[in-house]
Design a protein around this nucleic acid. Sequence first.
DNA 1: CCAGCAGCCTGTGCGC
DNA 2: TGCGCACAGGCTGCTG
Length: 271
Amino acid sequence: MPELPEVETVKNSLKQLVLNEKIISVNVLYDKIIAYPKVEEFKNKLINQTITDIKRRGKWLMFELNDYYLLSHLRMEGKYLIRKKEDPLLKHEHVEFVFKDKSLRYKDTRKFGKMYLYEKENIFDKKPLNELGLEPWDSNLDIDYLKEKYKNKKLAIKTILLDQSIIVGIGNIYADEILFLSKINPFKKANELNSEELIQIIINTKKTLEKAIKLGGTTIKSYESSEGVHGNFQEQLLVHGNTSTCALCNNKVLKTKIGGRGTYYCETCQK
DNA sequence: CCAGCAGCCTGTGCGC
DNA sequence: TGCGCACAGGCTGCTG
């Protein structure tokens, strides 16, 4: 569950579940999830830390602790679950945070997720957060900002929308939706977009992500809906995953590949 | 510096 | 039923 609306939804539900819980012990079963520091140090530092808040920056979850921030990226399939502390770790549960009377499990089938643990000061100046672009609702996100950022980008706008150093939080599904609503062909080079098209991107990015957050995000793989967070935005998707016809012109929605990612668009409506 | 692509992992669904 | 392949909501690191 990886794009911004899903992470926002996870953040809000985790807040209800683990705020003010103190970590008693930590188990790591797959070391590569822990990007920094080394696993032993990661575990030791977390002991006796209380979760005082949970925030989000782009697709990163930020667990605020007494002395640290635990940063967690879900990548393709990461999710958090609450279980009884005495329950054995199930398949694909790679990291466990044990509290007084429950445990928080990080489950990630493909093991792509990453965690960082840093001292709280200057957290935004370090490793994963320091190169992130603007949040979709940042008042600095305007035409001039995009013009400057897109100036030398000759890649397809579809690819550029996924670039987290420009606007954070857009992933493969929402990129397709944003371009459809903006009536922009996903193959169009970013540096060739005109002002009107840039306005449309800004408006529709906000609109799409806001609506998705309201609906609890998008849940695509039905087999995963039994546990974790289940959103309803998938019912609102206009092009992504659409194997039939365009809602506007009734021509067939095309599926192609851009920058290695599956891309859906309407040739007629998106110029 | 850039664009393109393999790699990281596991599971599912499809065609044969 | 079994096998091989393409594909999956993300991102990094290597290549030319």
